[in-house]
Design a protein around this nucleic acid. Sequence first.
DNA 1: CTGAAAGCGCTTACAG
DNA 2: CTGAAAGCGCTTACAG
Lengths: 339, 339
Amino acid sequence: MAKATSFDIAYKAGVSQSTVSRALRNSPLVNEETRLKVQQIARELNYKVDKHASSLRTQQSNTIALLLFEDPTNDDSLINPFFLSMLGSITRACAQKGYDLLVSFQQSSNDWHADFEDSKKADGLILLGYGDFVDYEEKLLQLSQQNTHFIRWGAPVKNDKIVSVGCDNFHGGYQITEHVIKNGRTKFAFLGDASSHSPEFLDRYHGFCQALTDNKLSINSELQIDAISVEDSGYQAACQLIKKGIEFDAIFGASDLIAIGAMRALQEHGIKIPEQVAVVGFDDIAVASFTIPALTTAKQDTKLAGELLVDNLIALINGETPETTLMPTTLIVRKSCGN
Amino acid sequence: MAKATSFDIAYKAGVSQSTVSRALRNSPLVNEETRLKVQQIARELNYKVDKHASSLRTQQSNTIALLLFEDPTNDDSLINPFFLSMLGSITRACAQKGYDLLVSFQQSSNDWHADFEDSKKADGLILLGYGDFVDYEEKLLQLSQQNTHFIRWGAPVKNDKIVSVGCDNFHGGYQITEHVIKNGRTKFAFLGDASSHSPEFLDRYHGFCQALTDNKLSINSELQIDAISVEDSGYQAACQLIKKGIEFDAIFGASDLIAIGAMRALQEHGIKIPEQVAVVGFDDIAVASFTIPALTTAKQDTKLAGELLVDNLIALINGETPETTLMPTTLIVRKSCGN
DNA sequence: CTGAAAGCGCTTACAG
DNA sequence: CTGAAAGCGCTTACAG
């Protein structure tokens, strides 16, 4: 049998289809008794409102689209666990607020058609992912001009029409670096892209530099090596670092994945962690507590992040003007930094 | 400005709205020149087809809904990483096939309303998650009776109207157990629910038992302790096991999370892995390669799984009759089993 | 409190 | 090759 429509219910209940619609939406306009009867029949017929019809009519979908940008190299491998965890918390937050979540991946290389399309299916967009921010920003402006409701995860941007939720990467970077300095390290390397292409990493780097400066330690730019947030990239960067032959006793990985790759490189070269080199990361992905030694890191609270992202987007959809939020990171001390 | 409709384009192009619709869908019925003009104008106006309208009209949404059932205890904690990884691969597979993916969580406790609702928004459903299978099965039958297109991840069920994709849990359990037996272990414990409530775990348990039997080792049911796929549950089960005071030299965790929890318990009790007790898991989640010692496990190929799930569901939607698929697992030998 | 009617933006027979 | 028209299943003014 085909799916039941509101007309089928109307027929069975002996009322008009308008009344059925009202009864189902618990309109106060409808008689208690009528409402109960209609709802009863709806249940019997296993009737559910057709989302497409109601969305078309009301011009809103109660759906949020999540666009996940992937790291360019990440051809076919697993998704960055940090974003996966964000995905989980966003899904939860949406469910709680009664929104559906449409998930899609964007290839950074892509022509970004999909996002515009999604803007027709969803009331708003959440943008998630690293990627080259320079390309990225331009697209953001386009979205903004189209009056698309969207919010992004990441470092705040100057443009005040673009609302972001992100961590205080500067302070997080500062805090964890300072912790390692107190441990007695003096020669710091930084593994991660430190350019405007990756604003989050850049902020961490700035925090890192500031901590060094405040503690009268020098910053050796030879010890900063680019890497993207992929384990292997961290590994490569660390190998490169080691090859340089410049002494260092601490590595700040711009993300946990980078730090973990670096640890692998160090171990392969027989360098002891943390005795010879302290290693710290950023994110606190699940794996971080299981590495050998366990990784000290700056935790980004993905649960809170998901909630803020969803709440702010819904505010935006409702015509409010939420502000860019900066969440604090939490220093998680484990073994890899020598405590 | 409001969003452009096909009428706006028709007006600008000096053709009828029907022609616009045809041109946009690349209908061969429309004149080349007309088509190009229409498409050009559509681009200029940043026009996108309204999905709700077209879905309402065509009665299909090109959307797949993913229902993720959570482990009952998993109140607010992180999602099982294995499913998170499945989520990732399903998202990818959908994108590749041109389907949107609607993600939603189900509280196992729930009255399962949401799934029916989702069946109106999506052309088909993917069901993912453990949970009490006894409750679960009944709902599956309901879905099936409603002619909902759906496919599930997990052990095959007898009912041939229900299509599943899953791993060969029996063989995976057999294989990994046999590997540990060859390592010289003789007193095996199994941590995980081994009842019809968790068919996947049960199949692994059967494979485990079969391997023991084939190798003339005895099965001590005192050494099987229930646990669900959560790290802490594995920890608790192992503590219980230790408290029993019965000797054992190998633990088969029904999932990696359980095995990892068990390893923590062993270590807290000063029991050396793998010297005194070998530990193996199932899944090969990302964390498995980072534990100390690294965890030997039976890998489930989530990438392939996601593809099969999506492909089979699309086949179902298209009126074909895909069959239940059993994927092989791969033995991943690491340190925790003593090699 | 209820019903008849319009209309959301498409797709697709039907007629030319 | 093109257009006029119906209709997908709702929600919501409008009239009573």
